[in-house]
């Protein structure tokens, strides 16, 4: 379905048809931009390895970007958008990115489209208007991306808290809230009771 030109001359084609006929170029350029956001030495690895199991990061990025572009060029995006965004952002949420950098790649798509369609856009005011429509969609995509990114970060924090809660000294004492456990008095009691950290001499002094 993609990669071949639709019938009719290009000047009459609407922006979505143009995007569709340039699908592969857009995907490739956009993926390159995403890889550019990684440190160079690592980026080369991501680019070169194709095995989905040997290079899961690259695999997820490719899968996500391809999906997002497909969604964008169909005029009514489906639920799938979130899944594709998730594919990329779930990775970026655990990598060394500040939130802005983590989602910045979405905006690169605008640049990619303008580059790819530069010639057609230059003297076609109608296309420019349609482009604004596409760019609005991209803006919405960015907001959605941020939601998903934050969702992943929240998930991480939640997982951290769950692990802390599972720690035996908390369970032993029936403390369900880590912050309560961290209060000095409780910590002190716990230490005394469990001798988690004290030396044997300490416990002897307590008269066991």
């Amino acid at each position: 379905m993609f990669g071949r030109k639709k019938g009719g001359s290009e000047t009459k084609a609407n922006i979505y048809e143009l995007l569709e006929s340039n699908y592969h170029t857009i995907v490739k350029k956009w993926i390159d931009k995403v890889y550019d956001s990684y440190p160079e030495d690592g980026a080369k690895f991501l680019r070169n390895k194709k095995d989905p199991f040997a290079n899961p990061v690259g695999f997820r990025i490719t899968r996500g970007i391809e999906g997002l572009v497909k969604e964008l060029i169909t005029e009514e995006p489906s639920e799938g958008v979130e899944e594709f965004l998730d594919s990329i952002l779930r990775v970026r949420a655990v990598q060394d990115f500040v939130p802005g950098d983590a989602v910045a790649f979405i905006f690169e798509l605008k640049k990619v489209i303008r580059e790819v369609l530069a010639k057609q856009l230059r003297d076609n005011i109608r296309l420019m208007e349609e482009l604004l429509d596409v760019e609005t969609k991209i803006d919405r995509l960015a907001l959605l991306a941020f939601d998903i990114y934050m969702g992943c970060r929240e998930k991480l924090f939640q997982l951290k808290v769950e692990e802390i809660k599972k720690r035996p000294f908390l369970q032993l004492e029936g403390v369900s809230c880590p912050s309560a456990a961290l209060s000095l008095r409780q910590m002190k009691t716990l230490r005394e009771q469990l001798n988690l950290v004290g030396s044997r001499r300490d416990s002897e002094q307590q008269g066991h």
């Binding site: 899961p56 655990v94 991480l156």
Partner: peptide, 21 residues
């Protein structure tokens, strides 16, 4: 440990990816 969470998630991705499959 929990303070190592991000690194753990990165390191576990190859395994998780195979499970996902």
């Amino acid at each position: 440990t929990d303070e190592f969470m991000e690194m753990r998630m990165r390191g576990g991705l190859p395994r998780a990816n195979a499970v996902d499959y």
